[in-house]
Design a protein around this nucleic acid. Structure first.
Lengths: 106, 106
DNA sequence: TTGACATGTGACCAATGGGTCACATAAGTT
DNA sequence: AACTTATGTGACCCATTGGTCACATGTCAA
C-alpha cells in the first residue's frame, strides 16, 4: 500500500470526511469528544481515526491518558497539485469562485 | 449517494487515479486507447471510466462510434477548498513548494 | 488500592467493490 | 450485405471494508 493510496482510501468514507470536517472546525480533540458527535460506537470511530492517522491526514499528540487529534492539510494540497497545474489553477479557481458567488446571490 | 461521495469513491481506486493521470497528460482519448495502457480487460476499464464520469471527474463527448474522454479538474479543486482555507493555503503551498525544491536539489 | 475514565486489540459478520465473461448494439469499411 | 471495430449490459466470483463486541492496558483521583 503506497502513501497516496492510504490517503485516497482514507478519504473514501463519509464518516472519516466528517471527522476531518470536525477537526477543520476545531483542532486538538480527543477520541471521546469526537465520538460524541457521531452515531457510532467508540470502536468504529477509533478505527476511522487510525486510518486517517496512517494516511497522514490526522496527526496526534498524547497528553496523559488522552490523545489529541489535529488536521494535517498537506496531503490534501498534494492531491490538488497532482491534477491541477499552475496554469489551470487560475482558470479553475476563477470558475469555482464565480459559481460560489452566483449561488450566494440567488 | 451524494455528489462528493461519488467523487471520493472514484478517487479511491489506483486504476482510476492512473486513468486521470493519463488524461491529465493528454485529453480526448477513447476507451480503446486508454485500455491499451492498462493490464486489464476492456470491461474493467469501462467500469472505471463510468465511475469517473458519474463523479464528474471525467466528461465525455461522442464522435461517431467513439467516445472521447476529458479530465474535469473542478471536483478536485472543491476537495482542496473543503479543508484548506485561504489563510492556510499560503502556508501549506509554501511548505509543499519548499519541500519539492529541497528534494530536487539533492 | 480501589474505582472510574480514556484508549487499545483481535475476532467476527454483513455489505460493498474490483475484475472477468457471455452476450449485445451501433458505426465505419470494402 | 458481410466484416470489422468501438462501445455497452448483466451476472457472477473473490477480496476488501465498515461496524460491533469481548476483552485488555494505561492513567488519574480519592
Amino acid at each position: 500500500m503506497t502513501d497516496d493510496d492510504r490517503v485516497f482510501k482514507a478519504l473514501a468514507d463519509p464518516t472519516r470526511r466528517f471527522l476531518l470536517d470536525l477537526l477543520f472546525a476545531r483542532d486538538g480533540r480527543t477520541l471521546t469528544e469526537l465520538e460524541s458527535e457521531l452515531e457510532m460506537t467508540r470502536f468504529g470511530v477509533m478505527k476511522h481515526l487510525k486510518v486517517l492517522e496512517e494516511a497522514g491526514l490526522v496527526v496526534t499528540r498524547r497528553s496523559g491518558r488522552e490523545k489529541l487529534h489535529f488536521l494535517n492539510p498537506v496531503p490534501i494540497r498534494l492531491i490538488h497539485d497532482r491534477w491541477i497545474d499552475k496554469y489551470t489553477e487560475r482558470q479553475v479557481t476563477a470558475l469555482v469562485d464565480l459559481k460560489a458567488e452566483l449561488e450566494s446571490e440567488s
